[in-house]
Design a protein around this nucleic acid. Structure first.
Length: 834
RNA sequence: GCCGGAAUGGUGGAAUUGGUAGACGCAGCGGACUCAAAAUCCGCCGCCCGCAAGGGCUUGAGAGUUCGAGUCUCUCUUCCGGCACCA
């Protein structure tokens, strides 16, 4: 056999893919004798075809997986399908098919596409979240949470997408629009199921610190913003002339003595009692109606005209006992804090404008050091911190001290307490759609809501239904599904017809991969303890909040429910967020018609070239623009490597990388060996330490260039042949994670018995990096003036002397006095002159 | 407004700890091979002055620290992302 001169990727790629599959090369099991490495990419939604974004994501993952295997890790590298969700229903309606049929056909198609890319997955762990074997465990988790009050039902105004016919979680509303179809989201009063993610707000926030080393800063910052913790105080204002009080949340307790009114959300539960029978009640009611009917987006926009109305009721200042008028304001949010705000016009711009508009008093109680504020002359609120004034015994304290002291006194008198508020809301998981996991509860006329018994799980999603044209769920009209027996009294009951948000499935799939085929429990405890947490997770930054926050929450929640071990607080130790693949500067999209089809690229260049280009084009975190000339360049390189081997067959011995360290007599051998070992070092550092695949590939190119430069001379001598053989073995070994098919093929043709999939990562040698001389740069006043060649290890004195004598340097010293000479051995000499 | 990230040749991007700015590609230019083209191979390739030797300038702008700054500090500009009438 001989290596054909022509590089023909298709046959050989398919040959090796078959080899991997038949030999089950990438299947893994728990093995205590080896260090584990759990690496996964975000699993795809089975939309029909893979796109370049997938290819980039999975190529990055595959390089890391193959690299870690070569390093001796026991690598778990699984794949699956995020298979529930709306597009399946919409496509089924459009094509007159069933969502299940559409989904499974897509999975089958995309599986073939992924296999054609040569990714090293353990296909025996493949999962699809729409299978009952998967979602039944989710239903069990739901029941467990119900018992622990971590999931609950409540009626509230919800985000409703009229186009998708379903509610959306807060995280799925982007700029007031549906994350999926971009329709304006409406508010609709509905009874829905919620996961109590807010119970974990503090832990989700605090544990971000554990991720500081392994997660990108921007993802941490986004989660931080989303959780939105603010510390302050809840303060009680007793109502005047009746029982009860209004509680407010404030971050500025230091301004308490400046309160001149309170503002309540029109939805505040006390409003009815406060306005009943007051003068102007009708006008107040019409204000409330008007505000409630406003579009949510308009109401929360910054340009909203701030309006309010006096309720006619008063409360009492907790410290001074002063009468404080209670107003309603269209800008106060019922859902944040207590839905009531203490207004301090002197120190809050919004309150300032409101007070000026309605002629309410302004009291300045925080002043810049040494200055007095005159409320009448103020043109805007003084919002900075300062020194407290007109604040009884707190006067004279700086803001932060005053804030603490005031809270302490309130706490002592039982009129308030230090507290924390979060922006994060509970996670609404009810979806009024068909293609999702059924929520395992029934409603009995007698007993009310009843959970399905665990032994009756799974609640199967019926497949023999027809979807409606307009997208409404057929489940409420499917008696075989809705008719149920009450688990409590045995009487007739109606089954819940809402399904779970698809983000629930993706919140725990990483744990299921560890024991994907287990039938009697969601997880195998030993497998969980061996594999988790995930060492490296890779995916798009668009999931920075949604999926990654939910998965973190689920990990903590499953831990507390006893499914995951104590101490497993975070699912993903390291996160790599890869950038998008663009075409012509914008995101590839079908509607815009700017698509590069991976299949077409594989057809034209082979999978190895496509993989290589995706990693070479840019560092993984950055977006990159697909260019035809770019992939041509990658193809040229692959061909160059192939031809080099074809030219050198008969010369090369079947040796391993870095195998030749015999004393070298020729300068070419020494040079090539130097390049070989420094490239081996760099590629390892780049892949393992920095995720810089583009520079790793660049280094391999340098090694190939070095071989091309020396091979004509070296192939003449036995010493040269040994050096070439080792260097070329290094090329293949380093390139293997990127272009595995080609490397396997050449490796075999070179005469190796073992396939490359069991080849270890090469060890570079310090000795090979030792040189006899080195080049030292000479600067004069920091400007580069010359280079000197000195024996390696030369001391400062020699360097200084050689540098000063160098003609290119001494020219710049004429007529000047040398003030100082800085010597960095092995690097540079800087001569400072005046 | 608050938080995070970024800015380097014609172009994608290198420069890992403050020490030769522009690795490796792409595009371009010149040459070899060819009847010719493609492919391939060899050479050149930041900007300005210069025949050259050489010199000057150069990492968004400006200052600072340092023998020395793309890298550290401060101020500013522009762009990208997140949060935002959040009390």
């Amino acid at each position: 056999m001989a290596l054909q001169y022509r590089y023909a990727p298709h046959g050989l790629e398919e040959k090796w893919q078959k080899h991997w599959e038949e030999k089950n090369v990438f299947h893994c099991t728990e093995d205590a004798s080896r260090p584990k490495y759990y690496l996964m990419e975000m699993f795809p939604y089975p939309s029909g075809r893979i796109h370049m974004g997938h290819v980039r994501n999975y190529s990055i993952g595959d390089v890391m997986a193959r690299f870690r295997r070569m390093q001796g890790f026991n690598v778990l590298h699984p794949i699956g399908w995020d298979a529930f969700g709306l597009p399946a229903e919409n496509a089924a309606i459009k094509n007159n098919t069933h969502p299940a049929e559409w989904t499974y056909a897509n999975i089958s198609n995309m599986r073939t596409q992924l296999k054609r890319m040569g990714y090293s997955y353990d296909w025996q762990r493949e999962i699809a979240t729409c299978r009952p074997e998967y979602y039944r465990w989710e239903q069990e988790f739901f029941l467990k949470c119900l018992k622990k009050d971590l999931v609950y039902r409540k009626k509230a105004a919800q985000n409703w997408c009229p186009c998708c016919h379903t509610v959306l979680a807060n995280e799925q509303v982007v700029d007031g629009k549906c994350w999926r179809c971009d329709s304006d989201v409406e508010q609709k009063e509905l009874t829905q199921w919620f996961f109590r993610i807010t119970a974990y707000a503090d832990e989700l926030l605090a544990d971000l610190a554990k991720l500081e080393k392994g997660w990108p800063g921007r993802v941490l910052s986004m989660q931080n913003n989303w959780i939105g913790r603010s510390t302050g105080a809840e303060i009680e204002f007793a109502l005047e002339g009746r029982e009860g009080s209004v509680n407010v949340f404030t971050t500025r307790a230091d301004t308490l003595y400046g309160v001149t009114f309170l503002t309540l959300a029109p939805e505040h539960p006390l409003v009815e009692a406060l306005i009943a029978g007051k003068p102007g009640e009708t006008a107040i009611r019409s204000f409330i109606e008007r505000t409630k009917n406003m579009d949510r987006l308009d109401r929360q926009s910054e340009t909203l005209e701030k309006e309010g109305v006096f309720t006619g009721s008063y409360c009492l200042h907790p410290m001074t006992g002063e009468r404080i008028p209670i107003w309603l304001g269209n800008f106060v949010l019922a859902e944040y804090g207590t839905g009531a705000v203490m207004a301090v016009p002197a120190h809050d711009q919004r309150d300032f404008e409101f007070a000026r508009k309605y002629g309410i008093a302004i009291k300045a109680v925080v002043e810049p050091a040494g200055k007095e504020l005159d409320p009448a002359a103020m043109e805007e609120a003084y919002v900075e911190s300062g020194v407290l004034a007109r604040s009884a015994e707190f006067s004279g304290m700086p803001s932060d001290k005053g804030r603490e002291a005031i809270i302490r006194k309130l706490e002592a008198e039982g009129k308030g307490k230090a507290t924390v508020n979060y922006r994060l809301r509970d996670w609404n998981i009810s979806r009024q759609r068909y293609w999702g996991a059924p929520i395992p509860v029934v409603y009995c006329e007698k007993c009310g809501m009843q959970p399905v018994k665990e032994e009756d799980l799974p609640v199967l999603l019926p497949l023999d239904v027809k979807t409606f044209e307009d997208g409404r769920s057929p489940l409420p009209q499917t008696p075989s599904f809705t008719d149920a027996v009450c688990p409590c009294c045995g009487g007739p009951a109606r089954r819940e017809t809402d399904t779970m948000d698809t983000f629930v499935e993706s919140s725990w799939y990483f744990a299921r991969y560890t024991s994907a085929r287990k039938e009697d429990a969601p997880f195998d405890d030993a497998a969980i303890r061996y594999w988790l947490p995930v060492d490296q997770y890779i995916g798009g930054v668009e999931h920075a909040i949604l999926h990654l926050l939910y998965a973190r929450f689920f990990t903590k929640m499953l831990r507390d429910c006893g499914y995951l071990p104590k101490g497993l607080d975070e699912p993903f130790s390291n996160l790599l967020t890869q950038g998008m693949v663009l075409l012509g500067g914008s995101k590839m999209s079908k509607s815009k018609g700017n698509i590069v089809d991976p299949d077409a690229m594989v057809q034209k260049y082979g999978a190895d070239t496509v993989r290589l280009f995706c990693l070479f084009a840019a560092p993984p975190e950055r977006d990159f623009d697909w260019t035809d000339s770019g992939i041509e360049g990658a193809y040229r390189f692959v061909n160059r490597v192939w031809h080099l081997f074809a030219d050198l067959q008969g010369v090369l011995h079947p040796v391993h990388a870095c195998s030749d360290l015999s004393p070298a007599t020729s300068e070419a051998v020494r040079s090539l060996r130097y390049v070989e070992h420094s490239v081996v070092k760099k590629v390892g550092d780049d892949i393992a330490g920095r995720n810089q695949f583009n520079t790793a590939i660049a280094a391999i190119m340098e090694l190939v260039n070095a071989v091309a430069k020396y091979h004509a001379d070296l192939s003449q001598t036995e010493e040269g042949k040994r050096a070439l053989s080792s260097a070329m073995a290094s090329v293949l070994t380093l390139l293997y994670p990127f272009t595995p098919h080609m490397c396997e093929e050449i490796w075999q043709e070179l005469g190796h018995e073992e396939a490359m999939d069991s080849e270890p990562w090469p060890q570079w040698s310090k000795d090979a990096l030792v040189t006899e001389t080195c080049t030292v740069v000479v600067q004069v006043n920091g400007k580069l003036r010359g280079r000197i060649e000195v024996p390696a290890g030369s001391g400062p004195d020699v360097l200084e002397k050689t540098a000063l004598e160098d003609p290119a340097v001494s020219r710049h010293l004429e007529g000047k006095a040398v003030a100082k000479v800085v010597v960095v051995p092995g690097r540079l000499v800087n001569i400072v002159v005046r």
